[in-house]
Amino acid sequence: MPPVAPRSGDSIFANLEHMNAELFTLTYGAIVRQLITDLEEVDEVNKQLDQMGYNIGVRLIDEFLAKSNISRCVDFKETAEVIAKVGFKMFLGVTASVINWDADGTSCSIVLEDNPLVDFVELPDNCQGLHYCNILSGVVRGALEMVSMKTEVTWVRDMLRGDEVYELNVKLIKQVPEEYPYKDDE
């Protein structure tokens, strides 16, 4: 396999259709507020946001693979880099970085400094337990599940709670082997 060229989502992002990030931000805010009104419990809202993200992730991976021209990643490390450098850029127009690998390469953190979901947002006192961006963790989890990786995605740091960055821990639980037999090209 040839060495992996440095990849970035910039050119892919540039070729996609765009729209104003503010409508995106405010629409997301409207969704969160609607959930808080309907579900009342912050924990339930977190769960629902994660579920919505998951739904998006399982669909988004198709578009990602179709438009990014990314070939198969050799390991989880490469997968995480691709999510951070290409995935986030392609859809949200921001780049993330990957840090804090554990020794066996199955857990890392994706760090976002810029996050279009949270413009204009401040968590009121009664919503301190809210993971406002929980939809993102759901997206990552859903997308990875479609490429045979079961993961656990949790928030470590959150700027809305006073941290300096957004940090998302991604932990590989297990790699589901592909179903055999699949047809080889003859």
């Binding site: 992002f13 996609l16 259709e17 765009h18 729209m19 104003n20 990030a21 503010e22 409508l23 995106f24 629409t27 997301y28 409207a30 969704i31 609607q34 959930l35 309907d38 629902q48 919505m52 739904n55 998006i56 669909r59 988004l60 578009e63 392609m90 859809f91 949200l92 127009g93 279009p116 413009d119 939809i135």
Partner: peptide, 26 residues
């Protein structure tokens, strides 16, 4: 901000579809 930041149209389409689907359940 100046409001020049952009996201991909599909990101919005995905989000909007979730908004509609969620509300359909309600």
């Amino acid at each position: 901000t100046k409001g020049k930041q952009e996201v991909s149209l599909s990101a919005f389409a995905f989000l909007f579809s979730e908004l509609v689907q969620y509300n359909q359940t309600q």
